[in-house]
C-alpha cells in the first residue's frame, strides 16, 4: 500500500518536473526541474530495495545538474541565460519526435508479455542486479574501472599545468611557463 502510493507520487513528480523543464523560462529552473525529476527516479529505485543504485543515482544526478547548470548558462552566450527565455526550439519537429517516442515506449511497456515472478528476490538485490547485468565480465569491469580512474588522475598530473603567462593555477593557459616581454628581453 505505502509502496504503491509512494511509487505513484514519485512517478508523477518525475513526469511533471520533467515536463516543467520545457515550460519554465530560465536555464537555472530548467536545470533544477530536471534534477528533481532524476531525484524522483532515484527514489523510485529505493522502492525496489536497490538502495545503493538509488542513492548513487541521486548523488550523481545532483552533481551532474549542478555542473550542467553552469555550462548551460555559460554557453548561452551574450546574456539571454540570465534573462527569461524560451526553453524550446524547432517546436513542430521536436513535438513529433517526442510524441512518437512516448507512444512507442508506453506501447512497449503495456504490450510486452512481462514474465511473472519466480521465486523470491535475492537478499542482496544490488549484487544480484550487478551479476545479472555483468555476469562473467564482472571481474574485468572491476579491474578496468580502477585503471580508468587512475588514468584520469595520471593524465591530469602529467598534463603541463603551466603556460606562457605563468602557472595555470594563476589563471594562465597554454604555451611556455616563463612570461616573456614582447621585445624579447625577458623579464
Amino acid at each position: 500500500m505505502f509502496t504503491s502510493i509512494a511509487f505513484w507520487l514519485l512517478a508523477v513528480i518525475a513526469v511533471v518536473s520533467g515536463a516543467a523543464v520545457f515550460r519554465v523560462d530560465s536555464m537555472a529552473r530548467a536545470t533544477y526541474a530536471l534534477a528533481v525529476s532524476f531525484v524522483a527516479v532515484g527514489a523510485i529505485l529505493l522502492l525496489f530495495d536497490l538502495d545503493y543504485v538509488g542513492v548513487i543515482t541521486i548523488l550523481m544526478m545532483m552533481m551532474e545538474m549542478a555542473i550542467m547548470g553552469v555550462f548551460m548558462i555559460m554557453f548561452m552566450g551574450m546574456n539571454p541565460a540570465l534573462m527569461p527565455m524560451d526553453m524550446v526550439h524547432s517546436k513542430k519537429a521536436s513535438a513529433a519526435v517526442s510524441l512518437s517516442v512516448f507512444v512507442m515506449l508506453s506501447a512497449l511497456a503495456l504490450l510486452i508479455p512481462w514474465p511473472s515472478r519466480r521465486g523470491s528476490p535475492d537478499g542482496d538485490v544490488t549484487a544480484a542486479l550487478g551479476e545479472a547485468l555483468m555476469e562473467s565480465k564482472m571481474l574485468v569491469m572491476l579491474v578496468i574501472s580502477s585503471i580508468l580512474f587512475a588514468t584520469i588522475v595520471a593524465s591530469l598530473v602529467l598534463a603541463n599545468p603551466g603556460g606562457r603567462y605563468g602557472q595555470a593555477s594563476d589563471g594562465a593557459i597554454g604555451g611556455k611557463q616563463r612570461a616573456r616581454h614582447p621585445d624579447g628581453g625577458g623579464k
Binding site: 537555472a28 533544477y32 538502495d51 545503493y52 542513492v55 548513487i56 541521486i58 548523488l59 545532483m62 547548470g69
Partner: peptide
C-alpha cells in the same frame, strides 16, 4: 540504519553543491 549510510551522507553533501549555487 541504512545499509548504504556512507553513500547517503555523500549524496547529502552533494546536495549542498546545488543549494549553495541556488
Amino acid at each position: 540504519d541504512l545499509n548504504v549510510g556512507v553513500v547517503w551522507f555523500n549524496a547529502m553533501d552533494v546536495m549542498v553543491w546545488a543549494l549553495v549555487w541556488m
